[in-house]
Structure formats: C-alpha cells, structure tokens
Design a protein around this nucleic acid. Structure first.
Length: 858
RNA sequence: GCCCGCUUGGCGGAAUUGGUAGACGCAACGGACUUAAAAUCCGUUGUUCGAAAGGACGUCCCGGUUCGAGUCCGGGAGCGGGCACCA
C-alpha cells in the first residue's frame, strides 16, 4: 500500500481530464482553411446515434485519431470532424415502443455519445459537428435534391416494396423474417408503389472505370464494387410471338447459343405477365406466389426455381418455323436487363435445372474440343466452357468469341438483335414510407403532377405533432401537414409524404463538414481546399452501398455545379469488427461478460447465481448476444489511453479484434510501465551529448532510429499492431540500459524523448504528460514527428541462414553486403555444414545477399 | 444461391518483393523481492523423440511449381462480410 506512492502510480483520471481540457481550451484541433499549408482530411464513418458508443466506435475513432495526430505532427493542416447520421428506423421504433419522440430520443443519444467520445481524447474539431436530422442539414439536402431533379438525375416510377398486409406498413428487409412481418407475423407481399429514384445508372461506366484510379482503396472493395456494377456485353434480341403483335425483348450475354434456345422466361412483374394474367387464373395465382418471395436477391436466388407455361410461343429469330414456350419464372428479375431471357439449358446450369423440371428440350450447341458432335449430350451438368459450336447452322465449328461475333452480325442484319452493354447496377430507390427522414421537397398536384417546393419555402420541416400508435407512415396519417396548394396552379395538392433513404445523408456529409454552417450546401473555398477526404475509415460492411452511393452523389453534385471533384475518398481503410466470447446460462439465456466469473481452473460461472456457464465461441459484439463490454466502463477504470492502446495492439486493424480482459490488463500494465520508466529517468537531467558511444550504446541508438523509421512506415501503412510491437521492443531495450554514466544517460534520454513522441498519436494523454515531465514547454500536440537518422540505422553485420538443399543447417555472422566467395568459404567451414556435405558433390550454390546461402548437391 | 474476404503455438499475432516460421504481447510454469498478498523484476515455454548433444515434424486439408512455399498455381473444407428498405 505505502509503496504505491504518488510517483509509482499514474493518475489516469486527473491526467486525462487535464489534457482534454487543455486541448479544448486552446482549440488545438480547430481546422481553418490555410492555402499556405498542405491539408489532410481524415474522416471516420460517422455514427448512428443509437444510444451509447460501442467498442466498434472506439476502434474506428482510435484509428482515425492516430492518423489525424500523426499527420498533424508531420506538418499537415488536418481536418478531423465528427457528426451524427441521425435519421433512421431505430428512432421510430423507440417512438413506438417507449412513446418518446424520435427527435428527443435522437438528441439525447447524441448528447450521451458526444460526452463519451470526448472522454476518448480524440483530436476532433467539435466546432464542425453536425447532425443530419437538424433542419440546417436537411434543408441543404432538399436543395441538392431539387438541383438533381432539375438536372434530370431524379425520376419517379413504380417499384415494389415489402408490404405487411396486417399492419398496413412497408417493411424494411431487416423486418422481414423468413418471409413474415416481424411484428404481425403475416406473410409479406411485394407491393408496387410510385417511388423516387436517382439515376445512378447514368454513371455506371464512369463509376466502374474510375475504380482503377482509387489506388489507396483496398483491392477487395474495388473488386466488390466492380462485380456489383456488373458490366456485361451482350445483345438485346426481339422474339416475335404467335398470335400477338408485340415482340418480346430479351437480354443475353450468350447469343452464341441462340440455336440452343428452347424456352423464354419472363419476370412475374413483366408487362406481358400482367397482360396474360388477365385471361389466365392459373397464371394469376402463380404471379401472386412469385410476389410472396420477397424483394431481396438472396431470397429470390435461394427459392426453388419455378415457372408457369403461359401457352404463348415465341418464334425463333433464326430458325424459320421453330417456336419455343414462354414461361413466367420466379428467378427472372424485372430490374435486370429487360426482365426477360431466353434459356439455353445445355450451357447454363440454372436453365438446365429449369428445363429438366419442365421437361424441355436440351440441345447442346457448344461441345468440348475433343468430343464427337453426334455423341455429346448434356445430362444434369451444363457445359459452360469454350469449344467448337455444333447444331448451330452457320456457327458450327466456331469458337465462343467467333460464334458471338457471327451470331451478333446475323441478328443485327435481320433487325432482330442489337449489341448492348448491360449493367447489373440498378437505379437507386430513395423513397421511404417513414417519418424520421429528410422530407422529399415535392408537392403532388392533381393537375400539374409532381411540383418542386419553391426554394424560399425550404426547408420542408418534419411536423412535430405526430402519432406513432397507428401503423403506417405518420406523415401520411397527419391531418394537416400534407395539405397544401400547388405552387404552380394554386389548386389543392398534397405534399410528398415519402422521406429520403438515409443513405442520402451519408452521401454528402463529408462535403458538408468542410463548411457545416454555410447557407449553401457547400462553400466553394472550403470545399476546394479540403476535399477530397484523404483518409476515410470504416467497416467493410459499407464496402458497396454507402461507398458507391457517395461516389455517385459526388458526381451528381459535380454535374449540378456544387463541387468539382468526382471521387470523394482518395484513401479508404476498412477495419474489422470487435468480438467477444459469448456466454449462456444452463437454460440457454445469454449472459453479459460482467455476469461471468472465471476461476483459476478456467471454469466459468455466473457471478449472479454461481451456476456453471457455457462459454461459446467469440462473435461480433452485439446487444442480442449480450457479449458487449461498455467502453465507458473501461475508460472509467483504466482510462482512454489503455482502451486506445488495446485497440491498436495485437490485431491487425483490417481483421476482427478479440476483446479480452487479459488484453486490457496488459495494456494497462504497459501504460504504468511507461509512466514509471519515464518518470523515474526524467528526474535525472540530460547530460551534454558525448563524443563517443560504446558498442552497446551504438546498438541502442541504432534501435531507436530503426524504431522511429519503422513506426513511421507502419502508421503510413495502417499497421498499428506492428508499431505497437516495435514500441514494446524499444521499451524493453531502454529499460535494460544499465550504465548510467553520461553517455548511457544521454542515450536513455534520446530514447525516451523519441518513445514519447512515437506513442503520442496512440496514447495522447500519457504522452503529453510524459513530454512535459521530460522538460518540454511546447505541448506534444504542437510538436513535430521525430525523424530517423538513416546513418545510425545502418547495419554493420548480418545473420545469414546457411541451408543445404533448402533446409536450414546453421546461421553465420557476416559483414553487411559481403561477397559470395567469402560467404561460401565461411559456410562450408561451419562444422555442421562440413559434416553434412562430406562426400557430396556441390552442384549449385544460391546466395541471396544478407539473407541466405543455399548449398545444393547432386 | 451469387460476389468478396479470412484460416500460422494454449491464445492475439509477426515474418516488406518466394529466402532463418513463431518477433512482440497474453496466458501458463519456475524463481527473486515481501511476514503475506498485490504490484514489480528475472527465466522457461510450437509438437515430438532424446539424459544431453542433436534429430524429425510443423503455417486449415489435398495436389503442383521452385534450390527454397505461410507467401505463387489448381482443387477442397470451415468461418465471416455484402446481396440494393439495418446503418
């Protein structure tokens, strides 16, 4: 007890509060446009204000903060803002469940989370804080929307939603569980509504091509977006139909297989399906069945592939007199291509499964190179490789690409086909039948149709007096809000009651951060200086939708003259999740980690009732599985620096992190170890620099400078865990400096000063405190990043591996860059090598300087 | 179902371009200090055979390329992310 005197133990609370206050009062992190300085914009994906911050936030913001502080020390003018992605469903759910207004709920959550984030000691510019649910934000979003509308980037069409027939409510995909509504339990139907869309597909090619330029994005994210956009070159082909005047338009990428076409399939939502269903009750029933599947691609793909023969037959475009059946099929998407396909079962697995099920013909038109055209047939595995064509008239013998070309020409010549590039990407549906979102600034007039709300009447504010007890969209239920007169003709009209998808807010907030209080959506001067974001950091789960929407929106804003860049994020880093073991009681109830006691023999018991607990594998921290640790508890007990350090140690940032008590304890021990090491030695003044250093001290200095260099490179490359390991090694070395003569003391001080500067971005409070202890008047936050002395880093000798036939025999010490002859002599005279080589004939020696020498014998 | 990842000791991980696998941390064990405990410090720790010296095996599995493979290629398994209304 008494040995734990004031000098031994680090007073975390006092110190962290001290420096947080200091940074705030001095406005250290307020960013101002300064064209004389190079800028650096660091941004972490802003949080949804769900209530309290979680470990995922701590990890995300710690990483961003390390970059922000490191770049700042390296001389950049850093913008590092924070805000709230404040619109969304949870606020409405809270309103329904706890009778609290979404506005109140959201702002209270923001207040809580802001104070929690402030305790993390982040180098944030809080003066730029914004919340997307604030009218100051959504006013500008409405302005952008209207500009987009003017520029023909917005349109309205019918599109389906998940409809709960009991609650009379549109459901999010998340609210559909196994095809049933989450509250009512009723089977969910697809229902068509008039909805607004952004023309993201206008930019398909550009969004795809520009991915190549995003050099500082993870390759996997670029690949995912590439596949998502899904460019494919193919043909539109028109099939005439027996007994009908219209033609069926299909899209295919395998027009070389046209002679193998044995059926056509159309989507249940295809106009032809609707038309035919009028006279066919069986088809009507089948279409209803299709619409019960749901709207997600996964549900459609997993559903059993089914079809319904419409009885209408399509005429083959190249074989006179041949007709094939037209089916309505549940796996054909109306939104992709033309909503109609032709099937060539022999060369497409899904078509083949379908053909076998409905006993349709299977005609092979491509055969394996060595196969006999007369013998080859397809059973239950489609042949999808390249090969000579057969049973295909003028295509016979041609390879896949030649056959495609020839078929395309023939189809174009007769006017029944046209080459076309198609994209899997669909236009972005932005209508949401919900209250807590940005109102769409449109008035629907019975005479004029949709009319923009005049700019001087913006923002269209959300009404506050809303009722969440009835189901459906509160805006639509509101007695007066929607009743207005048409701005054009003055007759009675209705406001658009749909609100915008919350992805719209997150598609431009990064631009708004540059000038969050500007009267226009963005301020030119600010945006030109700060944009693009130099480093964006967030979860991989956003790899496609959010990031693609933001890329589109930036282009759309450019087209409307708001800004002059295409790509919002020059650098992207996607971090892993924070996981924890899961615990269940004997009766299967989930338990929180704080309810668990683990005894010395490793048996886990419930802290509450002493009963044994089943320890499950580690999973992403989630409320539902209760495997959560509250960051605030950790910060209260161990301080922000400990939490931050733990987040950065061990796990590579792109991978999942396993949260363990032992790991936190280790980080906490290290914080104290550092404090003791520096506090103890800072008391002894630094002597003048000596002329010479002995061998050990030279090695220590070498390590100090290698560490500076290594940590710098690690931070640049997002390898925080590696820099942590280097810092541990340096601390071990510095702790072991025995000689306290002037030269030893000088080196110790050199090491400590640099050490403190290196930990600055990771443990800013402790680093500031130690920096002050070392006698510095200028705060660390205003000090520059250390520079490694390359001369001191040079290695005098290296350890070489000596291998025989690739197997390690021994190692030898040799001068750096020594030539091969000398190494050979040294290696062969090693006893272990000599013994192993006795009587053997050397056939080859491979020498990789400073790494390895490999002796190969006959 | 489709697209994209990941898999290395008891555990988290390191190994910059194909060149000494296991750095660093955690846990465990042994020791020092202490009346005792905590804290701290020192040491051992991939598996296996061996008293030791030393040997063999070893990076999810199977196969290949190479003087040499955790790293490259082909096939497979398990786990995770996304699939357009969760954010």
């Amino acid at each position: 007890m008494t040995s734990e005197s004031k000098t031994d133990r680090y007073n975390v609370k006092e110190t962290e509060t001290k420096w947080q206050t200091f940074w705030e009062e001095k406005e250290c992190f307020h960013a101002k446009v300064d064209p004389a300085k190079p800028k650096y914009y660091v941004l972490e994906m802003f949080p949804y204000p769900s209530g309290r911050i979680h470990m995922g936030h701590v990890r995300n913001y710690t990483m961003g903060d390390v970059i922000a502080r490191y770049k700042r020390a390296s001389g950049f003018n850093v913008l590092h803002p924070m805000g709230w992605d404040a619109f969304g469903m949870p606020a409405e759910n809270a309103a329904m469940e706890h009778d609290v207004h979404p506005d109140k709920w959201t702002y209270e959550n923001i207040a809580t989370m802001r104070s929690q984030l402030k305790k993390m000691g982040l180098a944030l510019d809080w003066s730029k804080e914004l919340a997307t649910c604030h009218p100051g934000y959504y006013l500008n979003e409405q302005k952008i929307f209207l500009k987009l509308l003017e520029n023909d980037l917005v349109y309205r069409r019918r599109s389906s939603v998940n409809w709960d027939p009991i609650d009379n409510t549109v459901l999010a995909n998340e609210q559909v569980i196994d095809g049933l509504g989450w509250r009512s339990g009723a089977p969910v139907e697809r229902k068509e509504l008039d909805q607004w869309f952004f023309r993201i597909t206008d930019f398909s090619e550009d969004l795809l091509e520009s991915l190549k330029e995003l050099k500082r994005w993870p390759a996997k994210v670029r690949v995912m977006q590439e596949n998502w956009i899904g460019r494919s070159e193919g043909m539109k082909i028109w099939f005439e139909m027996e007994g009908r005047d219209d033609r069926l338009q299909v899209f295919t990428t395998r027009h070389d297989t046209i002679f193998g076409a044995t059926f056509c399939a159309i989507s249940a939502e295809h106009p032809l399906s609707t038309d035919l269903a009028n006279k066919d009750d069986g088809l009507k029933t089948f279409i209803a069945e299709c619409k019960a599947i749901g709207t997600t691609e996964a549900a459609l793909e997993k559903a059993e592939k089914k079809g319904y023969d419409t009885g209408v037959r399509a005429k083959h475009p190249l074989i006179p007199g041949k007709t094939i059946p037209i089916y309505v099929a549940n796996f054909v998407l109306m939104d992709y291509g033309t909503g109609a396909i032709y099937g060539c079962p022999a060369h497409d697995q899904r078509d083949l499964d379908f053909a076998r099920k409905y006993e349709l013909d299977v005609i092979p038109v491509v055969i394996p190179p060595e196969a006999d055209p007369k013998e080859f047939h397809v059973d239950n595995v489609a042949f999808t490789d390249d090969g000579p064509h057969a049973n295909s008239d003028f295509l016979n013998g041609l390879t896949l690409s030649d056959a495609k070309e020839a078929a395309a020409r023939a189809l174009e010549k007769t006017g029944v086909g046209r080459r076309e590039t198609n994209y899997r990407l669909r236009d972005w549906g932005i209508s949401r039948q919900r209250y807590w979102g940005c109102p769409i600034p449109i008035i629907n007039c019975p005479n004029c149709g949709p009319v923009p709300v005049p700019e001087e009447e913006l923002p269209v504010r959300l009404p506050e007096d809303v009722d969440f007890t009835s189901r459906g969209n509160p805006l639509e239920q509101h007695p007066t809000w929607k009743l207005v007169s048409c701005p054009k003709c003055g007759t009675g009209a209705e406001r658009e009651t749909d609100t915008l998808d919350t992805f719209v807010e997150s598609s431009w907030y990064f631009a708004r951060f540059c000038s969050p209080r500007a009267e226009t959506p963005v301020d030119q001067k600010a945006i030109e200086y700060w944009m693009p974001v130099d480093q964006y950091i967030g979860g991989v789960e956003h790899a496609i939708l959010h990031l693609l929407y933001a890329r589109f929106f930036t282009r759309a804003m450019k087209k409307c003259g708001f800004l002059d860049i295409e790509e919002p994020f020059a650098g992207l880093f996607t971090q892993g999740m924070v996981c924890h073991e899961t615990y269940r009681s004997e009766d299967g109830e989930w338990l929180t980690p704080s309810q668990i006691e683990t005894s010395n023999n490793g048996v886990a018991k419930s802290f509450v009732d002493g009963k044994p607990v089943k320890v499950g594998r580690s999973e992403k921290m989630s409320k539902s599985k209760k495997n959560v640790v509250d960051p605030e508890d950790i910060i209260e007990t161990f301080g922000a620096d400990t939490a931050r350090w733990f987040m950065l140690s061990d796990s590579p940032p792109e991978r999942d992190l396993e949260w363990t008590d032992a790991g936190v304890a280790g980080a906490w021990r290290f914080v104290n170890k550092l404090w003791r090491l520096v506090a103890k030695n800072a008391a002894i003044p630094k002597p003048p620099k000596p002329e010479v250093f002995d061998k050990n001290l030279r090695a220590t200095r070498q390590q100090i400078h290698i560490t500076i260099d290594g940590v710098t490179q690690d931070l640049e490359g997002f390898h925080f865990n590696r820099s942590v390991a280097r810092i541990y090694e340096l601390v071990n070395t510095l702790s072991n400096i025995k000689a306290k003569d002037p030269s030893g003391l000088w080196v110790l001080h050199e090491g400590l000063e640099n050490l403190v500067r290196l930990i600055g971005p990771m443990m800013p409070h402790l680093a500031e405190e130690l920096w002050q202890k070392l006698g510095n008047d200028i705060p660390l936050t205003e000090s520059s990043w250390p520079k490694a002395d390359k001369d001191l880093m040079a290695q005098e000798t290296v350890t070489l591996a000596v291998q025989i036939k690739g197997k390690l025999k021994t190692t030898i010490e040799a001068p750096h860059d020594v030539d091969q002859k000398k190494v050979e002599t040294m290696a062969l005279s090693e006893p272990a090598v000599a013994a192993a080589m006795e009587g053997k004939n050397i056939t080859r020696i491979i020498y990789i300087p400073n790494k390895v020498i490999n002796i190969v014998y006959g």
